[in-house]
Design a protein around this nucleic acid. Structure first.
Length: 755
DNA sequence: ATAACGATTTCGCGCCTCGCGGAGC
DNA sequence: GCGCGAAATCGTTAT
């Protein structure tokens, strides 16, 4: 087969490797592409970029590019994609791990549309039929979305000639790595693969698996100084020492005094908020008048809710915090304001390091330990180095600084481990049973794998097998999962030992559900039919592995247990005993269920946040998840031949869950710009259905709380009527006034829920 | 002597995050 | 593994 051994360019000296953009023509790259790059003001490539472009990737060879963030991986990918499209046609797929990143890349790649290249983004947030995507040349997708598209056997998949896997090292992430690994296993040999990675311990091994050339470098466009701070001493990697006041916050003040910014990584949300408050107070007086004014404007533009109020308070001081409790709108607002230089200090949980590109002159790592499922552990070197990599803003700073704060740790050890140390090796996460289960199911139900032998044959293509080379373990694992699938009627087997995909299994896989979730749904279905009720259903949703669990506080336990007993008749399971290992989990499921129940009974956001001890972002996420699972439950119920009445009941409940309303508002809430709040206001003002609204005078509607001219305009447009200048309205009952398509608010914004 | 209240010490609790679906007359 | 708030203990003062 392919005999070319992958070659590693490990040590490379930048000197002599420079490459002019013009030289691309030597590789057959189209003039238009070259011109476009030069228009961006780029005339020469960075050394690692040159190295990558020379590696053979432009001739269609696979490449693994392991270089630091912001050293120009994206540009390489862009050139390779464009070149491929210009010479070979087909489609390029760009895989990202985060929705936010998908959007970021979309904005970047859109500039190529001048050359007639069509760019599309598809994530769970965007509706996107396969046909629609077929029209595009570059498709940006999250790994999960692409995996899902593969399972749906989208037509255009066979046109894909290039896969770019951004952040390919996430293949080693516990819960999501397997997805990426399987996508690559599917596409290996069918499309060219370009992997973009952070530096990892075993890049060679990964490249070997991908049959790819390997380019590794630690070259950066901005110089980077690394150091450790311990009690007033800032010890640089070269041994030099700077004196500071004893507290680490002096590093932040110092940066801001120099007219720069600081990014501080901490390990809890609470710390992020606390430190932002503390730092804000010290940084406030260094702001210029116009800055202070702009910040105030920004803060005022934020909607008021318990989480945002905390944010507003620090924002006016030129500080901010960034964590998953924030809504998405708030997060991007902060990111933009930091990029603009308006926010001087940003404190963040480690999420930020793997997310959008947000560089800062100085990066301070306050914590190197974190709480995870297995208790406390050191944050992996890989992750810390990603944080470190955020130091230095390419266009603004000559040099970036990354400083790890030592508290109880010995400074030398931190230095050794995180600054000079090698990042961890990547391990295949098909070893994670949950991931493996779902992938094996997909292979059988969606990818036409017909026998056990064939299954093993495919699995031999994975990184898992490449890495372990242990057929026995692989077969053992596969066997136990096949049994599970057989036992629960996801699949069947005929007399010749051929697999038969059953509808239940097929749908489960297409819905992208964990088979365990599907099993739970299936088992509970008879009880739902017998006694349909929101609480029971919500508890069921909350008990699935696909729904993250809400943490429960010690002090809350008793009251939720009482609640569970009170509601025992509504639940589809018995209440476990205190000694049961699942007791804790059960209570947190009850808590989640109760939250959802409150939500559909129109309890205000602020009250929910307060009562359940969560942030806005959490609320939003829980509801989104429940919404998705509810939909999946309905789909599976259909496959399992549930009664028509049950399906109808579930559908209404799904709508209520989606919008957070009681029954009576379901009609109103379908209108654009009308969410739970405005719908309630309208209803209480006597406008109880669409007809009432249509008949009402605009002035009457404007008198309702929360209904302004803009909203009204939008509603009238929905009916195909211009807002009459508060005079006469067209007869609304004419059917042609109703437009075909219902415009929806963009999912993923806060407005989606508050409308 | 002791209630009352403020200051200081001890105790135990809670801690990080991301993605997945998709219907029209 | 550690910060934080609550609870517990200690300390001071007023009556």
């Amino acid at each position: 087969m392919l005999s070319t051994k992958p070659k590693a360019y490990k040590r490379f000296s930048p000197i002599g490797y420079a490459m002019q953009v013009d030289e691309l023509s030597k590789f057959g790259v189209d003039e238009r592409i070259i011109r476009k790059i030069k228009e961006r003001g780029i005339s020469e490539f960075y050394p690692p970029q040159a190295e990558a472009l020379r590696s053979g990737v432009l001739n269609g060879e696979n490449l693994l590019l392991a270089i630091p963030t912001a050293s120009g991986k994206t540009l390489v990918a862009e050139i390779v994609m464009l070149h491929k499209l210009f010479t070979g046609g087909g489609k390029a797929v760009y895989l990202v791990p985060l929705k936010a990143l998908a959007e970021e890349k979309y904005r970047e790649f859109k500039t190529w549309e001048d050359l007639g290249v069509r760019v599309a983004v598809t994530t769970g947030d965007y509706d996107s039929s396969e046909e629609w995507l077929g029209k595009y040349d570059i498709i940006i997708a999250t790994s999960e979305k692409f995996d899902s598209l593969l399972r749906h056997k989208s037509r255009w998949i066979r046109d894909v000639t290039l896969i770019v896997a951004d952040e390919i090292h996430l293949l080693g992430s516990y819960d999501r790595g397997a997805t990426l690994e399987m996508i690559l296993s599917h596409m290996l040999g069918k499309a060219q693969i370009l992997g973009l990675s952070a530096t990892v311990g075993n890049a060679e091994e990964l490249a070997e698996w991908l049959n790819a050339k390997l380019v590794v470098s630690d070259w950066r466009p901005v110089k980077l100084r690394k150091g450790v701070f311990a009690h007033g001493q800032l010890i640089w990697e070269d041994g030099k020492v700077d004196k500071f006041p004893p507290q680490w916050d002096s590093l932040v003040i110092d940066a801001v005094k120099k007219g720069k910014q600081a990014l501080v990584f901490v390990n809890t949300r609470r710390s992020a908020e606390k430190e932002a408050g503390m730092l804000g107070k010290k940084v406030r007086r260094l702001l210029t008048k116009p800055e202070a004014r702009r910040l105030k404007e920004l803060a005022e533009s934020l909607e008021s809710n318990p989480t945002n109020d905390k944010l507003k308070e620090v924002l006016v001081n030129g500080a901010a915090f960034h964590h998953a409790g924030l809504g998405r709108a708030e997060r991007t607002l902060i990111e933009d304001a930091f990029r603009e230089g308006l926010i001087k200090v940003l404190t963040a949980t480690p999420t930020l390091a793997m997310g959008v590109n947000l560089p800062s002159f100085r990066v301070i790592i306050r914590d190197t330990k974190r709480y995870s499922t297995f208790g406390w552990s050191d944050i992996p070197v890989l992750e810390i180095q990603q944080m470190i990599g955020r130091a230095g803003r390419p266009k603004y700073d000559k040099e970036g600084e990354a400083i790890i704060v030592a508290k109880t740790e010995k400074p030398e050890e931190l230095m050794e481990k995180y600054i000079f140390g090698k990042p961890e090796k990547l391990f295949s996460m098909l070893s994670n049973d949950a991931a493996f289960r779902s992938q094996v199911l997909a292979l059988i139900t969606n990818f036409g794998v017909e026998s056990f032998r064939e299954l093993i044959g495919f699995l031999e293509k994975t990184f898992y097998y490449h890495q372990r080379k242990d057929l026995e373990i692989l077969e053992g694992k596969a066997k136990s999962i096949v049994y599970f699938l057989l036992e629960n009627e996801f699949i069947d087997i005929d007399l010749n030992d051929s697999f038969i995909a059953l509808p239940f299994g097929i749908r489960t896989s297409q819905l992208y559900l964990d088979p365990l979730t599907a099993k739970k749904f299936k088992d509970a279905l008879p009880q739902i039919e017998e006694n349909p009720n929101p609480l029971g259903i919500f508890q069921l949703l909350a008990s699935t592995p696909d729904m993250g669990t809400l943490s429960i506080k010690r002090k809350e336990q008793e009251s939720y247990l009482d609640y569970a007993y009170e509601m025992e008749d509504y639940l589809y399971r018995s209440i476990p005993y205190w000694e049961d290992y699942e007791f804790q989990k059960f209570l947190s499921e009850v808590k989640t269920a109760k939250l959802l129940l409150d939500w559909i009974n129109e309890v205000s956001e602020a009250k929910l946040i307060e009562a359940y001890g969560i942030d806005t972002g959490d609320l939003y996420r829980i509801i989104e998840l429940a919404d998705w699972l509810m939909y999946s439950l309905i789909e599976l119920a259909k496959v399992l031949n549930a009664g028509g009445e049950t399906i109808k009941y579930l559908r209404r409940l799904h709508l209520r869950l989606k919008h957070g309303v009681r029954e009576e508002l379901l009609e109103l809430v379908e209108l654009p710009m009308i969410g739970r709040r405005r719908a309630r206001a309208l209803y209480n003002a006597g406008f109880k259905n669409v007809n009432d609204i249509v008949k009402a005078k605009p002035s009457e509607l404007l008198a309702v709380e929360g209904i302004g001219v803009k909203v009204l305009e939008r509603i009238y447009r929905h009916f195909g009527v211009e807002l009459p200048l508060l005079k006469n309205i067209k007869d609304p009952d004419k059917p042609e006034d109703k437009p075909k398509e219902k415009p929806k608010p963009k999912k993923g914004t806060l407005d989606y829920f508050l409308k």
